[in-house]
Design a binder for these strands. Structure first.
Lengths: 336, 336
DNA sequence: TTTAGTAATGTAACCGTTTTCATTTGTCTT
DNA sequence: AAGACAAATGAAAACGGTTACATTACTAAA
């Protein structure tokens, strides 16, 4: 591979001049600039990012921490992140943490060694020490799809309006006449679940409905959880007629459980999911679900991070994206 | 951040000695080794990969080229790739090419500038110039889930047995009594589709069934394609009773089309998919599909690449992974 | 005790850039 | 034509490691 020296020699200038041309410095005469460009062309030279990173510090690379890329929610987020990165000339390194704090710490250590320019973090727990330390070390960070509990930390946060998401989902069920509405959430350490619960409670309260604590359950975001818990709740004496699940996978588990117990969705049981992943269209019946703009979230978060890196922003913003309800065929009116 | 100089000063040795300790060189006495380690510990020093990459050339980073991470098939592949990378101390940079050759070329250029150690390529067309040039430039490359048409190119290839996949899917339908079996494939530029077709033809021929060319259609891997094409074929006078689709999404499109036309799966129409993505379990009816070991493919490909990078292998291997049929409820016997 | 030979350590060049500072070149005044 | 000043260029020192080679410190044999 050709180096800057080869270019310099061929253009009969010093490497400093070549470097200036490379970085569009104004203090190169038109004549020599052309000569250098020609040499670059002829040698098919392209600068070594590693070498320039050593002095400039910038590697044009970002780290993305997510629990699991095989989960469609995070895949969609990742796509948005990668799109923005590409648009701004950055690349992203993907890290799957499997919800494990030790893996998260290890990846952060590794990526810091590699001098990446910033982190996009989708794995943050409510007050995740790894992440808080990272932010405090003054590394550019943006928190994506999660919330973090840091007093006066300089960090951008891009989330969607989870309280409202929980609210509109529950409201929709209430409007359909449901009164006994179960609420299946993800892990309580992830703040979005607390927010969605808040929305659920708000809607219930607003409608003057009694909240039955046994119908609010925290678990994980998996199909299995929805399935098992729904079976349990549907076996209750006074069983719920509707479920609000905190993601599409859990909602699908609920649908499977209903079918398993000989109940029909939506005739006997209504189900609302969350995320509007591609699964929602595919499952039968198609799932009514809360649409988060995942790709947009990923894109915006990355945009913020890059602005921060370039010094065009000083961080500390909190963006809340709208959600909306996509009504499909897993919910219907109840008569009682 | 502490540098090797800080460590050297604190341990009262030269930076060369520190470097030796860092790289586990045997020619450091136990005593000084301890001293250096202590200094490293105290300063919380960790070496700058960028700097070392400049001399060692190795960045411990790999590039993964896929069409779209939001596609569950590639997400699964990517997960396997990332798992292996993590196990061997590498990181991966993800690139979405959207099936576009120009994007592919651009990413290759960019990643070469960043001196990554090797490429895992899942986007290769039958004879993709970008990829062929890359391989010829002697960069370590492994082709994942695709095939490439290079006479004596030194490149590892990890694929699954697509001919057999097409065969067992079709055979399954034939065994159920189907005679008119449609075959919906992806783009013909992607060799796997040719292979799956080959398997289809082999099974048909073996059973002495007449192949109707109008029932073999190339398209893309999307739901829409399956939907549209199925409607078309199901409107034929002498319509197929079964479909073999080259991925799960297309198969789901077929199921939707059948339902749209008032036909029931599997009573009226049998459908076999391909990939065994999570969608297959979720769709209704659950999809009979050919299982590819995607995560394992990703893992193995990465393992090969890393061996190649470390000089433990000289490349040129071709691994074909087994496939098997997962029979669910989208296929049934036909009586005619 | 000297000496040879090996083990341990240090010095300095190098990897391919960027950038500060010094130097040269060119233009314009007077 | 000389001087002043700005514009263009170059030399060399960083950046933070690795490593070839030189040097020093040991150990054991003579």
């Amino acid at each position: 591979m050709a180096t800057i020296y080869d270019v310099a020699k061929r253009a009969k200038v010093s490497i400093a001049t070549v470097s200036r041309v490379l970085n569009n410095s104004p203090l190169v005469s038109e004549k020599t600039r052309e000569r250098v460009k020609k040499a670059i062309e002829e040698l098919n030279y392209s600068p070594n990012v590693i070498a320039s990173a050593l002095t400039k510090k910038s590697t044009l690379t970002l780290g993305l921490l997510i629990p699991d890329i095989a989960n469609p929610f995070f895949a969609e987020l990742a796509r948005g992140v990668e799109d923005a990165s590409a648009d701004f000339g950055f690349n992203i390194i993907i890290c799957n943490t499997d919800y494990r704090s030790d893996k998260e710490a290890e990846y952060i250590r590794l990526l810091k060694q590699k001098s990446i320019d910033g982190f996009i973090i989708s794995t943050a727990y409510y007050n995740d020490e790894n992440v808080i330390n990272l932010i405090k070390s003054n590394t550019p960070v943006v928190i994506l799809g999660r919330d973090i509990d840091g007093e006066d930390m300089v960090v951008d946060v891009v989330v969607s309006d989870n309280v409202n998401g929980g609210y509109i989902a529950t409201k929709h069920l209430i409007d359909l006449g449901h009164k006994n509405i179960a609420c299946l959430l993800g892990p309580p350490q992830v703040k979005v679940n607390l927010d969605r619960e808040k929305g659920y409670l708000k809607a219930m309260e607003e409608a003057g409905l009694k909240v039955r604590p046994e119908l609010i359950v925290f678990g994980d975001f998996k199909v299995e959880f929805g399935f098992k818990k729904a079976i349990e709740l549907l076996s209750l004496e006074h069983r719920p007629t509707a479920f609000f699940a905190a993601n599409d996978l859990t909602a699908i588990g609920v649908i499977k459980a209903a079918r398993f117990m000989g109940l029909e969705v939506p005739r006997d049981i209504s189900v609302v999911g969350y995320d509007n992943t591609m699964l929602a269209e595919i499952v039968d019946p198609p799932l009514t679900t809360v649409n988060q703009q995942m790709r947009k979230m990923g894109y915006m978060a990355t945009e913020f991070l890059i602005k921060r890196i370039k010094g065009e922003s000083s961080g500390g913003q909190r963006i809340v994206l709208d959600v909306d309800l996509v009504v499909r065929r897993s919910t219907s009116r109840v008569y009682n």
